[in-house]
């Protein structure tokens, strides 16, 4: 096992453990912090693939921005109510069913031989240009449409949340 293999296993196991921490911990703030850890280890996996841009974006967007807002909301809510939650039978069955279906799909997919897409090279690319060039050259229109959709959604949210105040 080389140094990079060791790092891979360390990061993967740490990531899975923090994932368990997210669902197992009672306090929502602790859960959120475990999720932040998960994102950081995931960024480590991206960095192992030499996709430094993706790793940086992963940390910047998810750990740095999204989770801070999550934490912000959790802190402003009353957390004691959720600490006393009971385990519901239906939720357990639903969760197990969804997890089982996902695992089954993953097993089916992983049994397939790896087929590279036609016309793409098999080297992994996660550098700045490899991510940004297709976005702003080949797929410019879908990218802009997505941006517009997000803007519409944002305006909608502001409108909905302000309606009560009139």
């Amino acid at each position: 096992m080389t140094f990079l293999d060791t790092l891979f296993w360390f990061l993967s196991i740490a990531m899975l453990l923090s994932g368990v921490g997210v669902i197992a911990s009672r306090s929502p703030v602790t859960s959120a912090m475990f999720l932040v850890m998960l994102f950081v280890f995931m960024a480590g996996l991206f960095a192992l693939l030499e996709a430094f841009f993706l790793a940086a974006i992963q940390v910047l967007v998810y750990a740095g921005a999204v989770m801070v807002l999550f934490l912000f909301v959790i802190m402003l809510l009353d957390v004691r109510a959720s600490q006393q939650r009971r385990v519901k039978l239906l939720a357990v069955f639903g969760g197990v069913a969804v997890a089982g279906a996902l695992a089954w799909e993953l097993i089916l997919i992983l049994q397939q031989p790896v087929r590279p897409l036609a016309g793409s090279d098999t080297n992994l690319h996660g550098g700045l240009e490899a991510v940004v060039k297709p976005l702003f050259a080949n797929y410019m229109l879908p990218f802009e449409v997505t941006a517009l959709l997000l803007l519409v959604a944002m305006v909608g949210v502001v409108l909905l949340s302000k309606r009560d105040m009139e």
Binding site: M33, F53, A56, V59, G64, V68, L71, G127
Partner: peptide, 18 residues
């Protein structure tokens, strides 16, 4: 010496909020 050093700087410094 990273090719996305600026993003790394902003990403790690955003952790100080926590």
């Amino acid at each position: 010496n990273l090719n996305a050093a600026v993003l790394v700087v902003f990403a790690t410094s955003s952790f100080a909020v926590y």
